[in-house]
Simulated assay, not measured.
Amino acid sequence: MKFKEYPDREMLVMDVAQQIVTDLNMALVGPDRVSIAVPGGTTPAPIFDVLCAADLDWARVDVLLTDERWVPADHARSNAGLLYRHLLMDRAADAHFVPYYVEGMKAKEGAAQTSGLIEQHVPLDVVVLGMGADMHTASLFPGALGLSDAMAADAPHLCAVQAEGQEPRVTLSAAVLNSAVQKHLVIFGDDKRAALDAAMDAQPEDAPISAVVQGATVHWAA
């Protein structure tokens, strides 16, 4: 794990966006399509605002979410909706987005249907991760219903999970996240840095981030 500390969040945003561009361009040297999985939430949105204008062969880029709330894209809490507002625009509008939500299905049913479609994108070329102060990443929440299945080595590519007090979610399994060629973890604040330090000495079920951060570059600003 490589740790990069930045003097401010603005510099972190610019550097991470440029590193993602570099990673994707390296992958695009090959003849095939490339894949990137990204989180939702407010932390990565400024990165997406920069990344969407990057000069890339976006038509060969497949964009996936690390996780999604089981709500339609026009819902205020949809991660897909956030991508449409911040990433899948400008030059990046040419990218191919892989949605997870299936109208009329419950999260477990939809995850089972979509999991097979993710096969062609694995291993991911690039994954961008976030982390909560509870040491969760993607929708791998400590204590969540379905966490053990999603953390298993033979887990489906996409898994349904249910954290207490939250809407149903689907998440890429720990195995899929961990197998990415390039991994970037973006965290802000002293509380997140302390949580990451604590996670390194915890069991993966208690600190899911510890199961996927090996070999990653951690980008941190106060």
Rank of each mutant, 00 (worst) to 15 (best):
I20L: 11
V176M: 05
L147R: 02
L28I: 09
L88K: 07
K192C: 11
G116N: 14
R77C: 07
E10N: 12
R60P: 05
Q166G: 00
L87G: 02
P7N: 09
L83W: 00
R77E: 15
G215N: 07
V21F: 06
V212I: 10
M1N: 14
I209P: 01
E5C: 12
M26C: 03
M1I: 14
D49H: 00
D32C: 07
M135Y: 00
P142M: 06
A133P: 03
V34M: 08
H96A: 12
L64S: 05
H219Q: 11
Q162L: 13
M135K: 11
A152K: 07
D67F: 01
A144H: 07
A92P: 05
L177Q: 08
V161I: 12
M151N: 09
N79K: 03
Q162F: 01
A207F: 02
V61F: 10
L172I: 00
I187Q: 04
L83R: 03
G104M: 11
A202V: 01
H75S: 11
N25M: 06
E5H: 12
M89L: 15
K192M: 13
R193N: 07
A59R: 11
E119G: 10
L185G: 01
N25C: 09
R77H: 13
P72I: 09
A207H: 03
A160D: 08
D15A: 14
P168C: 03
P39S: 11
L145A: 14
P204C: 00
L158G: 05
P44M: 10
G215S: 05
D49E: 13
W70R: 11
V122Y: 02
S179M: 06
L12P: 11
D125P: 10
H75P: 06
D149Q: 15
G116T: 13
T217Q: 00
V16N: 05
A155Y: 03
A92E: 04
V71T: 08
V34E: 04
A199V: 08
A175G: 09
Y101L: 03
P123E: 02
A163V: 08
H75R: 05
R33F: 12
A73P: 10
E10V: 06
L172Y: 02
L129H: 07
R9D: 04
D90M: 09
V181N: 00
I187D: 03
D206E: 14
R69L: 07
G132T: 07
D154V: 02
H121F: 15
S210P: 00
A54Y: 06
M14F: 04
V213A: 01
K192H: 15
K108G: 14
L65A: 01
A152L: 06
D55E: 15
R91N: 15
E103V: 12
A194L: 09
A144S: 15
R85Q: 15
D191S: 13
R33H: 12
V16F: 06
L145N: 13
R85I: 13
T114P: 01
M200E: 14
T137A: 01
M151E: 09
A160Q: 02
D49V: 03
G143R: 08
L88C: 07
D197T: 14
G130C: 07
Q182S: 09
A160T: 04
A53P: 00
V186E: 03
W220T: 01
R193Q: 11
Q113E: 15
E167F: 02
